[in-house]
């Protein structure tokens, strides 16, 4: 969209200021991860530490196999989960976005109902382990996030914008619903699909609860679970040290604050590379404009 240069400059300035504000807390995380533990104890958190050290990262990569494997697990879960999840989400969202679909309302309600009511963790756990036998498999992390009512409803909102004329004319040409979906609808909706893909990918990348519940094997631990373990165990341990047997526990051997923050950085970092991949598809006005001609 072309607008006058002053306006653009003002808008840009607003965003630069906002981005700096958003960035400041995250920058603090990065800096703490690069600050020595003694420095942290003496001076607390600071934006400008006395000097930057990499001991926290060295600590994490001391046994590189663990973190490298976790990256692999997380990446596999995210890629498979996003591709399959996006496909299924788009298919059902498209069906209920079509105003001429006879089961539109009932299906919408059927989907939406699951956003509000759930049976809770116990029946879910029983289903996953005793009926689907997914315990300790990578599928226990992929399947749960495939379809969410929220995603379907939002994507439905986007897809409802596709003009019926296009679909009607494709029908005239003898195309079935499946062909229309794959050859007309998908190419027309790339910005919406890219957005949804991004959200699904982020969800998978951030999810640790399913891994916590279903994964016992150390080989299948995703990145976020490593992080969560580090964060939550520290709190539980420090508040219950009196229960630790005769000798107690030497907490000084445990991941320090800088190590925990380094884990945060390592866990978030790669997604910043993934972002631009999806952004390629955020193309202005493609949906309708390109079809008029």
């Amino acid at each position: 969209m072309n607008s006058n240069p002053t306006e653009t400059r003002v808008v840009n300035l607003i965003f630069i200021l906002l981005s700096l504000l958003m960035l400041a807390p995250f920058a603090l995380v990065v800096i703490i991860s690069l600050t020595g533990e003694a420095d942290l104890i003496q001076n607390g958190y600071r934006f400008v530490p006395d000097r930057l050290v990499f001991t926290a990262y060295e600590y994490i990569f001391k046994v590189p196999s663990i973190i490298v494997r976790s990256y692999g697990v997380t990446a596999a879960v995210t890629v498979i989960g996003t591709v399959s999840g996006l496909l299924v989400t788009a298919m059902i969202a498209y069906a209920i976005s079509r105003p001429d679909y006879g089961y539109r309302r009932v299906t919408s309600f059927y989907v939406f109902f699951t956003m509000l009511f759930s049976g809770g963790l116990i029946p879910y756990y029983i289903l996953m382990t005793q009926y689907l036998h997914l315990k300790d498999t990578i599928w226990a992390m992929i399947l749960p996030g495939m379809l969410s009512a929220w995603n379907v409803m939002v994507l439905k909102g986007f897809l409802a914008k596709i003009p019926m004329e296009i679909i009607e004319s494709a029908k005239m040409d003898g195309a079935g619903e499946w062909r229309i979906f794959f050859t007309v609808v998908i190419p027309l909706s790339t910005p919406a699909l890219a957005t949804m893909g991004l959200l699904i990918a982020f969800w998978h990348w951030n999810d640790w609860l399913n891994a916590l519940l279903f994964i016992d094997s150390q080989k299948l631990v995703p990145l976020q679970l490593l992080l969560v373990r580090m964060l939550s165990s520290m709190e539980v341990i420090t508040q219950n040290l009196d229960k630790f047997g005769i000798g107690g526990l030497d907490v000084s051997k445990f991941p320090t604050m800088s190590v925990r923050m380094a884990m945060v950085v390592l866990a978030a970092g790669p997604m910043m590379v993934v972002f631009p991949f999806f952004q390629r598809y955020f193309v202005q006005g493609l949906t309708v404009g390109s079809l008029k001609g």
């Binding site: 299924v88 989400t89 298919m91 059902i92 498209y94 069906a95 209920i96 089961y103 299906t107 059927y110 989907v111 699951t114 009511f117 759930s118 049976g119 809770g120 116990i122 029946p123 879910y124 029983i126 289903l127 689907l132 399947l143 749960p144 495939m146 379809l147 009512a149 379907v152 619903e177 499946w178 979906f181």
Partner: peptide, 19 residues
């Protein structure tokens, strides 16, 4: 087109709902 999603929700959302 909606069937995979419908079945998915049946298994992962409606069946455990008895809980």
């Amino acid at each position: 087109l909606s069937l995979p999603g419908v079945l998915y929700l049946l298994v992962f959302a409606y069946v455990p709902m008895f809980g």
